[in-house]
């Protein structure tokens, strides 16, 4: 089972003078259980791409398949709604979309619209809140607007989780959070991933990608320019820099050390691994007494 994009093109305002090609021939297969990271500049097509994953945007050309079903095909119309529910999409600054009077009502909005019974809705709300370590008892009656920024965001995301998606797509979920909030949030995302949820995350933070993603795609000008494990990607710093993206700071350090003649591996970014590698390379250099 997977999310699949086959030769997807997307053009904004086709045929008008302001026509722009946001996606060009995207082929992508996202397997169940993966943690996929998507990086790229603003305007590289990342957000356009993820909006195709649950049918919010229809490809100008090409196909999008959710668990084998082409969601934009007329014949699949009956199944479309059900299939789209498998993919939960969390937009940037999702807390701007909170609107209900209480936390419980806000998170329960989606499930209620599915026509579930009150007890079922309540169950779903409880479960979703538990997944993000939000305390049901103390928060349920509170107005979402009285919460801190980090909590508001979690409530908004809980609203998506309450729909029990198989695939969770997040567009820069940590933007604007403080370091503590960011760390906590990413750790919880990692827990969801370990419990079997497929995570697709758009982020500008290469350090976060290095730490959490199993596979990455790098987008530029509406195309996938690079893909592979974080190791693969970050050992090609020239290409990243050409696109105008950064590499994690420790990768940058290793590259500079190598340029200066210290014989280190450059495909590491975990701090302990980098430390060990530098110490090893220095010991080897001492042995040879050259730099």
């Amino acid at each position: 089972m997977s999310l699949e994009m086959k030769h997807v093109f997307y053009t904004y305002q086709e045929g008008s003078p302001t026509e722009s090609h946001a996606l060009q021939d995207i082929c992508l297969n996202i397997n169940e259980g993966e943690f996929l990271g998507i990086v790229g500049h603003t305007g590289s097509g990342k957000s356009t791409l993820i909006q195709h994953l649950n049918g919010l945007l229809k490809p100008t050309k090409g196909e999008v398949l959710i668990d084998g079903i082409n969601i934009n095909q007329k014949e699949a119309k009956a199944k479309r709604k059900e299939v789209r529910l498998k993919v939960g999409l969390v937009f940037q600054y999702p807390e701007y979309q909170l609107f209900e009077e209480t936390v419980e009502q806000d998170i329960g909005f989606g499930p209620r619209n599915l026509g579930l019974s009150d007890t079922e809705v309540q169950e779903r709300v409880k479960e979703a809140m538990a997944l993000l370590k939000l305390d049901y008892k103390t928060l349920r009656k509170q107005s979402p607007f009285d919460l801190s920024g980090g909590q508001k965001r979690k409530v908004a995301i809980a609203g998506v989780l309450a729909m029990k998606p198989k695939y969770l797509v997040l567009d820069e979920p940590t933007a604007g959070l403080d370091p503590r909030g960011r760390e906590e949030f990413l750790e919880q995302l990692a827990v969801l991933h370990r419990q079997g949820m497929t995570i697709i995350m758009v982020s500008h933070s290469m350090d976060d990608m290095a730490k959490y993603a199993q596979r990455m795609i790098v987008m530029d000008h509406g195309q996938i320019q690079l893909q592979g494990t974080p190791q693969d990607i970050f050992s090609q710093p020239e290409q990243l820099q050409q696109i105008g993206l950064d590499v994690p700071s420790l990768s940058r350090l290793l590259l500079r050390l190598k340029q200066r003649g210290l014989d280190v591996r450059t495909d590491l970014f975990d701090i302990e691994a980098v430390k060990t590698e530098i110490l090893r390379a220095m010991a080897a250099r001492e042995g040879k007494l050259t730099c």
Partner: peptide
């Protein structure tokens, strides 16, 4: 304090 530390400083 759970603040970020520049990775190079930590290293």
């Amino acid at each position: 304090m759970q603040l970020d530390v520049p990775p190079v400083a930590e290293l």
